[in-house]
Nucleic acid binder design. Structure first.
Lengths: 235, 235
DNA sequence: ACCTGAACACCGTTCAAGT
DNA sequence: ACCTGAACACCGTTCAAGT
């Protein structure tokens, strides 16, 4: 307490921390995309030098993993617990909710899709696998078939994840989704009638489809397949 | 197969062409991995400067796409035609063969997995979609459900594609696959018993599983689901 | 302990200049 | 038309030096 003002430069001198870095990385990824996450840009946003970041984080790979982890963990904590409105959800409903949670997370943060698809062995995906597996078990799938059943669900989610992320990236941030789908559908309709007979024939369905519903329809097909197998192999 | 040590002068006189560039890119990707494809490395292999490549190819994105296209086209040309041994294959068999073709292609060229997963709208994946869709149609799926059915199959394949590619990348080229899976299974078995109860319980199945068979089992589950839907919705 | 910022080794891409 | 290779604008990462 020497004489002088006690104005605290807290705002800018808030110390660097892994948490702050990851938060800034998520923000940067959301606003500028995967290509925009740069140690220099990150440092500027945190008003430091690029080197400082390395004190809290080993490198870009870990940073990306931590950012993904942060988003997915928040998703799983939210949506998957009990359902909320009292009634016991069926395992099918729980799986749908789980998958939809991941789907929506990727819808809001496309870069998460890319990251999940290329790092399936890391914590976030492991947790999704665990949650899915429990519901598969609750579904009555015999033990020997559970690993396969959970894997199919997970791989499907991963596939959609990657595709959605790519769509978000290839469509500039300004463009409308409907516009984008319309353009693709029109392209499909003009493909070679012989070489792409089937694709042409479903161009209309591509145009009309809703991403979320389509995703859930896929989940339901897989659930039907798993259940059919359970009846064949079980008891 | 590979040109030996005998230095052939004709090799370097042979003019640069898009075809030669793509072939060299595939070779580089196969031997050194995705990180090894560099315009400088490519130029050296073709004994030119980096700038020369840009005369035949617009940039790295196109080069990657062309390399993927080359591999997938070869795959589809091979395996998917008629079956080979006279008998008419069922649509199920045709879909299995198709999916397995993509699976094997990625097994031999892991970088194809990454590329397919992140560029699903390009020619190679479009062709897979077309071939799959025709078999879905042959399966008797009603028109309104065909787009969804083919999409589920494709997304599943894409998910496995990405995962396999990642596994291949994270395991150094020297290590054995069994060794790698064993290590993962052991890790699973030592997870927190409460938080990862399910994952722990299937660690043994992870260790025992065969990648190709597991992949096909997934395809069969989805086929069962599609067929169940057909019976519900059709006729 | 934590941060700074210049420096290193790379990368994709461009472009005047050559043949 | 096709190729050359230096140069540009970046990038992740390191590290002596500061506090």
């Amino acid at each position: 307490m020497t004489a002088g003002r006690t104005c605290r430069p807290e705002r800018r001198r808030e110390p660097l921390s892994r948490e702050r870095i990851v938060a800034a990385a998520v923000e940067l990824l959301d606003t500028v995309g995967e290509g925009g996450l740069t140690f220099r840009a990150l440092a500027e946003r945190l008003s430091t030098g690029p080197g400082a970041i390395y004190w809290h984080v080993t490198g870009k790979a870990e940073l990306l993993a931590a950012a993904t982890d942060a988003v997915v963990t928040a998703t799983l904590a939210d949506g998957t617990g009990e359902g909320g409105d009292g009634g016991d959800p069926t395992p099918q409903d729980a799986i749908r909710a789980l998958a939809l949670g991941v789907f929506d997370a990727i819808d809001h943060h496309p870069w998460v899709g890319t990251q999940l698809a290329r790092a399936p062995w890391q914590t976030p995906m492991m947790r999704v696998f665990e949650h899915t597996g429990r519901q598969v078990q609750a579904l009555g799938v015999p033990e020997a078939a559970r690993f396969t059943a959970a894997s199919v669900l997970l791989n499907y989610v991963l596939g959609v994840a990657g595709q959605n992320a790519e769509n978000a990236r290839s469509a500039p941030p300004g463009t409308d989704r409907t516009e984008f789908v319309d353009a693709a559908a029109s392209q499909w309709a003009e493909l070679d009638p012989e070489e792409y007979a089937f694709t042409r024939s479903v161009a209309g369905q591509l145009r009309r489809h809703d991403d979320r519903e389509e995703f859930l329809a896929g989940i339901d097909i897989i659930l039907a397949g798993i259940t059919a197998g359970r009846e064949r192999a079980g008891s």
